[in-house]
């Protein structure tokens, strides 16, 4: 079921011939890829291969880096996100992001989740907001752990809880795509397992792209895998095939631990 996308429906997000430069240095070379609702896509590759850079071009977070420049087309529902008419605030509300290190705001748990809905005006009343916060925390799998202490500071939670809080924060604005940049690299195995479980539950509802260093994680959580090396997309396909029968020697070497 995950193998076939209906040919008529356009992909949620598509990148075509994307190049990214930091000043004179080219970080991404001619990458084309599609991201869709019904699967999780994992970006793997050795450090410095450009997978995080590519992820950050998808919600224009690279705009905040001085000297960064993007060429090529990236579309969200067929609309070019680098078009001057695209409002970056709107874009980021539709394409949420979870970072490598949990980064809850130094506010209460409630205010962390309510942050996005408030700035985007999603709730008309306190009651509305309460509903949004509760459902986001439930979907992030955190509600039962924090429902009695919503007023406590978000930074007082454990690392794994903080990361789930950040996922909940991203979900609260009802995005269409969620980008995760090595979301488990700062977490212990138990917290990691919880996040992976959460990714399974979120699949289908959101298009999810996850950058990971951990091959087993990529195999566990994704249905598509893209292997990056030195700024190029080496291989892209169904996860099970990439891991069992890679077409490229470089992919095989990386997956078998020959380098990286």
């Amino acid at each position: 079921m995950t193998e076939q996308t209906t040919p008529s429906a356009p992909p949620k997000m598509a990148a075509r011939h994307v190049n990214v430069f930091y000043g004179d240095k080219q970080a991404i070379r001619d990458v084309s890829i599609e991201i869709d609702n019904d699967h999780v896509i994992a970006f793997i590759g050795p450090s410095g291969c450009g997978k995080s850079t590519f992820l950050r071009t998808l919600n224009r977070m690279n705009d905040t880096v001085a000297g960064a420049r993007v060429e090529g087309d990236i579309t969200l529902d067929g609309e070019n996100i680098y078009d001057p008419s695209m409002d970056v605030v709107q874009l980021r509300a539709r394409v949420g992001m979870v970072f490598q290190k949990p980064n809850p705001f130094p506010k209460s748990i409630y205010d962390n989740i309510a942050y996005g809905p408030r700035i985007h005006g999603l709730a008309n009343s306190k009651a509305d907001l309460d509903v949004i916060v509760e459902s986001a925390l439930r979907r992030a799998g955190l509600w039962d752990e924090v429902k009695d202490r919503l007023k406590d500071s978000g930074t007082a939670l454990s690392g794994g809880q903080q990361q789930r809080l950040c996922i909940g924060r991203a979900i609260a604005v009802e995005p269409e795509v969620i980008l995760m940049d090595e979301p488990c690299s700062a977490l212990d195995p138990i917290a990691t397992a919880k996040i992976e479980e959460l990714i399974h539950e979120l699949r289908g509802r959101y298009a999810i792209a996850i950058v990971t260093h951990n091959m087993q994680q990529a195999a566990r959580v994704s249905q598509r895998t893209a292997f990056f090396h030195l700024g190029t997309l080496v291989e892209y396909g169904v996860t099970s095939e990439i891991f069992t029968n890679p077409r490229e020697d470089r992919t095989k070497d990386y997956i078998t631990g020959r380098y990286g």
Binding site: V89, R92, F99, N103, F105, Y115
Partner: peptide, 11 residues
């Protein structure tokens, strides 16, 4: 990370 987190929310 705080700043990025907020900007990534569309703030």
């Amino acid at each position: 990370a705080m700043r990025d987190g907020s900007l990534a929310m569309g703030a």
